[in-house]
Amino acid sequence: MRLRRRRATELAAVGSGQSRVYRGERLAPALMLAPSVVILLALVIGPFVFLIDTALHRQNLFQTTPPRYVGADNFYYLFISTKFQVALVRMLVFAVTALAAEFVLGFVLAAWVHRLRDLPGMAIVRTLLTTPILVAPIVAAVMWRFMYQPDFGVINYILGLVGIPKPGWLSDPDIALFAIIAIDVWQWTPFVFLIVLAGMYAIPRSLYEAAKLDGTSPWRQITHLTIPWFKRVLVIVLLLRLIDLLRAFEVIVATTQGGPGDASYTLPVLVWETAFVNFQMGDAAAASLVLLVIVTIVITLLIRAISRQGVVGQGRR
């Protein structure tokens, strides 16, 4: 809109004799951009507008009544429902716990592999440690469901050998969410590990040697050298993981489908259940918009907090 107005004033300012050439020059970039704009419209903006529109209507796919405009009703009922509040809490617990575990583990593993990098066979260790990323998330979830199986699963089999009581991993409401977190940690810690390790390899060896001469303890080497060195990389990994964790879905649906009870009932599960189990499209659209807004807010806050420290987007200084 603003662009068009500016163009109009510019065109008016240009003498009429030159306007032809000028218009051609102006048109070329627009034409070249057109295909991507069309794709963007069709795949992102279109569906997004449709989503907002759906969120403002009451619509059940199993009923023949046409969608009815209800204004913000869908949002209102969503916010006052206990399900939504539970889902919100579960989602945050899931994301924060998994994120913390993945970071601590990934970092410790990377520091360990980096420290022992000169030993023979470390290349194999490195490869082995990264293989979980290669497994499709749905496959990982199903595989773990079998391992978690209380009666013939391998985990309880091992616990039985040692004589430890066998919990129902996915059927005990106190444990289920954390059992799922363990799957995510298993699969995505290698991602953190890999990027942190790459960051460690990028640090010049002489820097660590200088630190050794300076009498720096291994712990201070990590806190005063390694972490500051690739803070920026860490921030990017943090963001990527957080986005992923907030919308984690397949791993939950393939194991507990949000249960037992509401033990692992997160917001993405709520959206899925509302839309594709109950076919309440209006409510589901409202919930997914809320999810989108939450993710956006979290990410924005995080980026802003970090850029205030001069880590993102401000050069090396």
Binding site: P204, S206, L207, E209, A210, A211, L213, D214, G215, H224
Partner: peptide
Amino acid sequence: RERDIAMVFQDYALY
């Protein structure tokens, strides 16, 4: 660190 030496590196190795 037990040797009581200091070193100036070719690339300076400043933090």
